[in-house]
Amino acid sequence: MSDPVPLGDLVPGLERERRLAEIRREAERRGKLDVVGGRPPGAPFPQATPETGYYKIPLLKEPPWKWEIPLYFFVGGAAGAAAVVGAIADYTGVDRKLVKHARWIAAAGSVISPVLLVADLGRPARFLAMLRVFKPQSPMSMGVWTLVGFSSGAAAAAFAGFLSDRYGPSLPLRWLENAGQAASLAFGLPFSNYTGVLIGATAIPVWNRNVGDLPLHFAASGLAAAVGMLELMGHGKNRALQALGLGAGIFESWEGLRIEGRSDPHLDPLKHGASGWTTRTGGVLSGPVPTILRLLSALGGKRRSASLRRWAAWSAIAGSLITRFAWIRAGHASARDWKLPLEIRSE
C-alpha cells in the first residue's frame, strides 16, 4: 500500500475539482505525474474527449462489401478495357484474332460481373431493383446502367461473332456485331473505371481523398489486366499491346510513388497495416515489375523476350486484382479510423 492520496485534491469544491481534473488529465496523458503530492491514477478509464472522440469508437461504418465486389471491380476493369482494345483493333483493321479474343474477355466479364453483383446481393431478384431508377447522382446507379449497356453490347458482339464464324456471315449478324461492338466500346470506356468514382464519392476518407485519381488508376489497372490476358492468349508478340502495357505500368508506378510520397494521414491505410501491405504488393506487381520486365523484354532475345512478357502479363493481372482488394481493404481500415472523420490530428 502506498501513501494516502491527498484528499484535499479529491473532493469537490470548484478549485479542488479543477485541480483534480488537471492532475488526472496529466496522469492520463503521460502515465506519470510530477505534481507535488499528486499520484497518477493507476488504470486509465475510457474517456470521451475532443482528443479521443467518443471512446475512440469509429464514427463511420465499414463498407459492407466482401470479396465479390473487389473481384467485380477487377473483372469489370479488365473487361471494359478489353472491349475498348477489341473494338479499336477491329476499327483499325488489325488482327481478327485479337479482336475476337478481346471480345471474349469482354463477354466473359459481361457475364461474370452481374453474377458477382448478384452474389453480393444474395438474390437475383435484388439485382432487378437496381433497374427501377436511373439516378445520375448515384455512381452505383450509373455503374449498373453502364454494366447493363456494356454487358448487352459485349455479349451481342461476341455472340454474333461466334455465329458468323460458325455459320457464315450474314447481314443481320453483321449489324448485331457492329452495334454490339459499338456499345461495348461506348460503355466499356466508363465501365473500365467508373468503380473509381463509385468508391471515391463516399464518406470513406481514403477513398474520397483519392477521387480524382481513382478512375485513372482503375482504368490503367484494368487496361494492364486486359493487355496481360490478351498476351497470355497468344498475343505475346503484339507491339501495340506491349506499348499499352508499358503505358499502364508506368502510370501505375507513378500512382504508387504518389501514394508513398505524400504524408497525408488520409493515405495511411494505403501504407500501414494489412491494407498497406496489400496495396504495396498490388502496386509493385502493377507498376515497376511489369514495366521493368517489358523494358527488359525489348532488349533480350526472342525467346527470353516472350517469357519476360509472359511474366509481365501475369504480374500485371495479379497486380490489378490485388490492387482492387487493396483499395477495399484500405476502405475498411479508413472507416475504422476514429480520428479522421472527426478531424482529430494524430500526434
Partner: peptide, 29 residues
C-alpha cells in the same frame, strides 16, 4: 471530380489504344 477523372481516363484509354494500334497493330503477327 470523380467523373472528370473518369472522362479523362476514358479519353486516355481511347486515345492510347487508338494510337498504339494505329502505329503498330500488325507487328505481333
Amino acid at each position: 471530380k470523380g467523373w472528370r477523372s473518369s472522362a479523362l481516363a476514358a479519353g486516355l484509354l481511347l486515345g492510347g489504344t487508338l494510337l498504339a494500334l494505329l502505329t503498330d497493330g500488325r507487328s505481333g503477327r
